[in-house]
Design a protein around this nucleic acid. Structure first.
Length: 458
DNA sequence: TTTTGAGTTGTTCGA
DNA sequence: GTCGAACAACTCAAA
C-alpha cells in the first residue's frame, strides 16, 4: 500500500502543522514517523533530548486517541528511509524545514533516497521572505523587523483539531527510551496550552514591564514548547495580532518582537551558516581568549563570587532554563569579565538548556560577545553587580538559587564581600569560606577586555 | 553615487 | 537621589 510519510522533527503537534497538512493533502494514507537520529541521540540524554522524548510519548498518545499511530525508528535518517523504502511504498516524505547546517545536510541526503517535500513553519516568515530591496539578507535587527512587520502574515489559518489528522492506523512500532521527566517542564500538549492560556490572560500585558525582572514570573515560559513545535510561532503571531487591536498592546508588541528575534537569528544562520563555527564579524575572529579551565568551571558551577551570575548559572544547572536577562548577564561575564571564548558558553548552554536552539543560542552568544550582527559598542560590558541590583532589587532571585546567601540582608546581597565582620559573625557567614570571593575584580577586567578586542580588530 | 541616520536589552561620571 | 552626555569608529540601510 503506498503511503505518505509525515516525518516529525521539531514540529510536535497535530494542529496547524503545514507538514502534516501537506501529507494529508497528498491523498495517501499518512504514516507519522520519528527517527531517533543516532548522531543526535548519542551518549547520555540531556534535558532537551529528554523533553523531546517525553513530548513524543505524549504525541504518540494523541495519535492513538485519534486512531492513528507513531512509527519510531533509530539510526541515520537516510539509512532508515532506505530500509523503510524497501518494505513500504513511500510515495513522498513531508517534513518541516529546518535551517541548521546539520539539518540541511541531513535533509539533502534524505532527499536523494526518497522524494522529500519541506514545508514552512519553523519560522513565521521564511528566511528568504524577509530581504532587502536588492535581494540580499538583512544583518541588522531593526531594519529586519521593520520589513518583517510590513509583510502580510503568512499563515494565519489554524486548522481545527481533527481536520488534518492521519486517519489510517499502522501498527505502531519502535520504542522510545525511558527518560526521567524534565523537572519544571512537563512535556505535554496540555501543559503547553495551559501555559499559553495563563500567559495570555495574566501576564502578557505586563510583559514589557516585567520581562526583565529575574525575581518575577514575568516571562512566558513557553520557550521549550516553541522549540519543539508543541506551539507554533505562526499561531502565536496570529493570536497576538488578532488581540492587539483591543487591549494593552505594549506587552503584546514587545512579546511579538521576541518572536521576530527568533526569526531573525534563524535567518542569520540560514544565510550565514559559518556563524556556527565562528564570529559573524571577521574582525573579531582573533580575540586572544584566555584558556582558564578553572574559571570556566567556576562559571558553570555558579561559584564566581558574583551572586547574580551564580544564581543564574545554578538555575540553569538545576532546571535547564535560565531567565533571559540572566542569560545576558552570565554571557557578558564569561566573555567580558573572564575573557573566555563565547563558544565555550554556547556549548555549555546547549548542553544544559531545555529550550536550546542552535540559531537563537548562537545569535545570543555572539550578541553578548560583541562578535555578532549587532554593531556592538565596545563599551557594552555588563556590570554584574549593577544588573543584579536593577533586575533583582531585593535579591530574591539570588536567595532562591544561592541558598548560602539566604540570610544576607538586602543591602549586602549583591556584594557579599562587603559584609562587615560583625555582621558576618551574626550571620555565621564568612565570604571566602561559605561563599566564594569574586574570582575576578570587575573594575579591573574592563581594560583587559578592551585591549583584547582591540587586538583582534586591528 | 553619495549622503545621512541609526544601531535590543549599558555604564560611568559629573553637574 | 536624578539626569544628560560621553564613551570609537564603523557599517549597514535607505533615501
Amino acid at each position: 500500500m503506498p503511503v505518505a510519510i509525515w516525518w516529525i522533527r521539531r514540529d510536535l503537534r497535530l494542529t496547524d502543522n503545514p507538514a502534516l497538512q501537506a501529507a494529508r493533502k497528498s491523498g495517501y494514507p499518512v504514516m507519522p514517523v520519528f527517527i531517533l537520529d543516532e548522531r543526535l541521540m548519542a551518549g547520555p540524554l540531556n534535558r532537551r533530548q529528554r523533553f523531546l522524548i517525553s513530548a513524543l510519548a505524549d504525541l504518540r498518545e494523541q495519535l492513538h486517541r485519534e486512531g492513528s499511530s507513531l512509527l519510531i525508528r533509530e539510526g541515520k535518517p537516510d539509512e532508515v528511509f532506505l530500509s523503510l523504502f524497501k518494505k513500504t511504498e513511500v510515495v513522498r516524505v513531508f517534513a518541516e524545514e529546518d535551517f541548521s547546517p546539520y539539518a540541511r545536510n541531513r535533509d539533502e541526503k534524505v532527499s536523494r533516497i526518497v522524494p522529500l517535500t519541506l514545508t514552512k513553519g519553523l519560522t513565521i516568515h521564511p528566511p528568504d521572505a524577509v530581504m532587502k530591496p536588492d535581494g540580499s539578507p538583512y544583518t541588522i535587527f531593526t531594519p529586519y523587523s521593520r520589513k518583517w512587520v510590513s509583510l502580510p502574515a503568512p499563515f494565519l489559518a489554524a486548522s481545527v483539531p481533527g481536520e488534518f489528522l492521519p486517519t489510517n492506523r499502522f501498527p505502531a512500532s519502535g520504542s522510545l527510551p525511558e527518560v526521567e521527566p524534565v523537572n519544571g517542564s512537563t512535556a505535554t500538549r496540555e501543559e503547553a496550552e495551559t501555559r499559553l492560556a495563563l500567559f495570555l490572560s495574566l501576564r502578557i500585558d505586563e510583559y514589557a514591564e516585567h520581562r526583565d525582572r529575574m525575581d518575577r514570573n514575568g516571562t512566558s515560559g513557553l520557550s521549550p514548547y516553541i522549540r519543539f513545535g508543541l506551539l507554533s510561532p505562526g499561531r502565536l503571531t496570529a493570536i497576538i495580532r488578532q488581540e492587539a487591536a483591543d487591549v494593552g498592546t505594549e506587552g503584546r508588541r514587545v512579546w511579538l518582537n521576541e518572536l521576530i528575534w527568533r526569526d531573525f537569528y534563524q535567518s542569520i544562520l540560514y544565510h550565514f551558516p559559518y556563524v556556527k563555527d565562528g564570529a559573524f564579524q571577521p574582525k573579531f575572529r582573533h580575540i586572544p581568549w584566555r584558556d582558564a579551565p578553572g574559571d570556566l568551571q567556576a562559571w558553570k558551577d555558579g561559584l564566581t563570587g558574583y551572586p547574580a551570575v551564580d544564581a543564574a548559572m545554578r538555575q540553569l544547572k538545576t532546571t535547564g532554563w535560565m531567565h533571559n536577562r540572566a542569560r545576558m548577564i552570565t554571557a557578558s561575564f564569561l566573555t567580558k569579565d573572564l575573557l573566555i571564548n563565547w563558544q565555550e558558553g554556547e556549548r555549555w548552554f546547549m548542553d544544559q538548556l531545555v529550550d536550546g536552539d542552535p540559531a537563537s543560542n548562537n545569535g545570543g552568544w555572539q550578541w553578548a560577545a560583541g562578535t555578532g550582527t549587532d554593531a556592538a559598542p565596545y563599551f557594552r560590558i555588563f556590570n554584574p553587580i549593577l544588573q543584579g541590583k536593577r533586575f533583582d532589587p531585593q535579591g530574591n532571585y539570588i536567595r532562591r538559587w544561592v541558598p548560602e546567601l539566604r540570610p544576607v540582608p538586602d543591602e549586602y546581597i549583591h556584594e557579599p564581600w562587603t559584609i562587615p565582620p560583625l555582621v558576618q559573625t551574626s550571620l555565621g557567614l564568612v565570604p571566602g569560606r561559605d561563599y566564594p570571593l569574586p574570582i575576578v575584580d570587575h573594575g579591573q577586567v574592563k581594560e583587559r577586555t578592551l585591549a583584547a578586542y582591540r587586538a583582534s580588530s586591528t
